[in-house]
Design a protein around this nucleic acid. Structure first.
Lengths: 348, 348
DNA sequence: ATGAAAGCGCTAACAA
DNA sequence: TTGTTAGCGCTTTCAT
């Protein structure tokens, strides 16, 4: 069934049917009602493909994430799809497995006719090819919005968080509890969050006149197993750190994995503060103090930023030139894991 | 840039370019090479939309899940997308929030031109409208594959698991540990997994001559909060159950939430076995014994089942009529939470 | 092996 | 306010 069938049945031209469907005001009320009745009766639904081809527009947005299994990203997806629904847009989610080649393959598979916009958490902050590809999309009218991780020198809109401040606060918390031998399991220092979170750690130590011990800084690559290995390395150091700051949720899990295997416990044996919450843990005895962000909302915001760049948005021409980068505030949730038994004993 | 531009540059007809692109054999080797060279040089990529419109085919598949945040579903998504990639298909994921109206709205928004197939975890097992909509898709050539939950009397292909057997084994395990007052927090009994898991519980009790106490059966609706409430109810019963069987991952979390709030511990205070694993818990002191399934693989299998129904698949005509329903085996992972302290004391 | 031309279903000038 | 018509970019008979 096509628009022609409806037109014939309603005794009007196809273009009139098209006008009715698209809410064009240039239609007499009576004809509109007639056409609408027929559409309803026939159960006709327009062919989106044909429409998109005709107007040269699409209604799907691509969401590219490094790790499809990480809850952080699926929560973002939730926010994105909820906002996308408001404009009847659908979203493709692509996982790149933190692999730059895969990311580029995904990007290459995306043609400008099939998508209306891109929201991406890039694998690397500095990669020529990715940057070029994304830039090309923007040039061809497909807006790009970053979340969480930056692409340096790119000028894309984006939603980021105050990683450095958040981390600094977390480490300050540990210091306030009496810790001075604080290790950090970092993310890749080649990524915005990895580096900023490390910077926060650095700053908190400096502000409190604690000399940074390079041995206490180990890369966990934002991965469970790597972070487990990092923890192993850290635990062999002398003096052994009394507290750990973990740079993201997977890092925290890797750390916990090591602790479990070695029968170590928070409070008794070590203190731990992590970046990003792990909801499942709130149902356990691991009362993890964390730096969090409003993840769902960040997804919504990203989608809204994208919408603003769509043709026909209410964005004035003058406003188009400006780059919108939101820096959302982090928040500390204190649950107790920053505390350390030996220190409490001293106070007794 | 269109196929015409390429044609012009190569001094051939558009149809020839089309043939080259689609690997049609009726092209002289030399012209093929010439055209390919030009395509490459020009960096031309065909317009998928136009192709789809022309051939009346699409390359995206819809994945409809009740809860976008549940890891179980995102793991399925992972399998699905990995298999979809092999045929260059993309997947839309839709969350229905366990809400039948939303499910139907999603289904209505899907038109047969935009998708090539549907993989769905339906909210309800018995709902006229959903069943009709899905049937209509199949009739119009869009195959439907179910995962985990059935639509009764539908005859769709699907991947299910031996929920009943798995649950029975789990409960048997508890019985073997000496439990006889075993409660179950069920899922909705109007869903295949909800009911089958309950049936397994029933059967295990019956097989061991334990009378089923109706009070021990409380619905948690496959949700955290509801399961928490269910647990509260259960804990007020006399005699208080010594073991709980939870019907899915969220149910388990709700149960754990209650336990934490009331300072109850596995082994000391109660035993617990759950359906579906919760990976995060393996990094904690909650050594949960669970019934699991190969979730990622189930996603892959579902996609593969769908592929078989696509036009052009190697499925012989005779095979088209048969319904393919895979029943994957569950597996028990024993980690200790089935044990109960008071019983062990008796043995000492 | 190649080309010409008619469509796929819709939209958007342009006319009326 | 409505209709006519020429595309959108591709595929696919049907000729040649």
């Amino acid at each position: 069934m096509t628009i022609y069938d409806i037109a014939k049945a309603a005794n009007v031209a196809p273009s009139t049917v098209s006008r009715v469907i698209n809410g064009n005001k240039n239609v007499k009320q009576s004809t509109r009602e007639k056409v609408e009745a027929i559409i309803k009766e026939a159960g006709y639904t327009p062919n989106v493909l044909a429409r998109n081809l005709s107007v040269g527009d699409s209604n799907t947005i691509a969401f590219v994430v490094p790790d499809i299994d990480n809850q952080f990203f699926t929560t973002l997806l939730h926010g994105i799809t909820d906002m996308a629904m408001e404009i009847d847009a659908n979203v493709f989610m692509f996982g790149t497995d933190e692999n730059i080649e895969r990311e580029q393959k995904v990007l290459s598979s995306l043609t400008s006719e099939m998508i209306k916009g891109i929201i991406i958490i890039p694998v690397l902050e500095e990669n020529r090819t990715t940057k070029e590809k994304l830039t090309k999309f923007e040039e061809s009218g497909i807006p790009v919005v970053l979340i969480d991780r930056d692409v340096i020198g790119s000028g894309f809109d984006g939603i980021f968080s105050e990683d450095s401040n958040g981390s600094a606060q977390a480490v300050e918390l540990l210091i306030a509890e009496g810790h001075s031998n604080i290790a950090i399991i970092t993310g890749p220092l080649t990524s915005y969050p990895g580096r900023e979170r490390f910077k926060g750690y650095e700053r908190a130590l400096a502000d409190n006149n604690i000399t940074l011990n390079q041995e206490y800084v180990v890369n966990g690559g934002f991965r469970v197993q790597e972070s487990y290995n990092a923890m192993k390395k850290i635990m062999q150091l002398e003096p052994r750190p009394t507290a750990i700051f973990t740079s993201n949720n997977l890092t925290t899990l890797g750390c916990l994995k090591y602790m479990k295997e070695h029968n170590m416990h928070i409070y008794e044996d070590i203190s731990l503060v992590g970046f990003d919450d792990i909801p499942e843990l709130t149902y356990t005895d691991i009362n993890l103090t964390v730096v969090t962000r409003p993840v769902y909302k960040m997804g919504c915001d990203a989608m809204n930023l994208l919408k603003m760049r769509f043709p026909g948005s209410e964005l004035s021409e003058g406003d188009r030139g400006i780059v919108r980068r939101h820096l959302v505030k982090t928040q500390i949730i204190k649950r107790g894991s920053e505390k350390y038994r030996p220190f409490e004993k001293n106070q007794e």
